Amino acid sequence: MLLLVVWIVVVVLSVVVLGALAFGVLGARARLAREVTAFEREVRPLLDQVAATTDRAAPAADER
């Protein structure tokens, strides 16, 4: 009987620990997705400027 109680406690604790790990990993994944979105929003104007500069510089490089 005591062994059954010990196994039940082990299973319950395992489920709680795995649940906490899953919650932490999913939370970190959501935070990372938000960070990537914010970084892309901040960098997009710079990428647009680089593309525009490259487009303006391409004809000048072709003339040489």
Rank of each mutant, 00 (worst) to 15 (best):
E40R: 15
R44N: 03
L4T: 02
L47E: 07
E63D: 04
P59N: 13
W7Y: 11
T54H: 08
L18P: 02
L4E: 02
V36N: 12
F23Q: 09
A57L: 15
L3I: 15
T37W: 10
V43P: 00
G24K: 09
S14N: 11
P45V: 04
G19K: 01
R56M: 11
R64N: 06
D55S: 14
V12H: 00
L32W: 11
R64S: 12
S14E: 05
T37D: 14
A33L: 02
D48N: 11
R44D: 05
L3M: 14
R29E: 04
A58N: 01
V25K: 03
M1Q: 06
P45R: 01
I8S: 06
G27H: 03
V43Y: 11
E40V: 10
I8F: 07
R31L: 11
L26K: 08
A57H: 09
E42M: 08
V12W: 06
V15N: 00
E63C: 01
V5P: 04
T37V: 14
V15R: 00
E35R: 13
V43S: 13
V36S: 06
T37L: 14
D55T: 13
A58H: 02
F23R: 12
R31Q: 09
R64K: 07
A60H: 03
A61D: 03
L21K: 01
L47S: 05
L2S: 08
A20K: 08
A33D: 03
A52F: 05
R56V: 10
V17Y: 13
V43D: 07
Q49G: 08
V25G: 02
A57T: 14
R56D: 10
P59L: 13
A52I: 00
V17Q: 04
T54K: 14
A57Y: 12
L26N: 08
V6Y: 06
I8P: 00
V12F: 09
E42D: 14
L21Y: 05
F23W: 14
L18F: 15
L47G: 11
L3K: 15
T53W: 09
D55A: 15
V17S: 10
G24R: 11
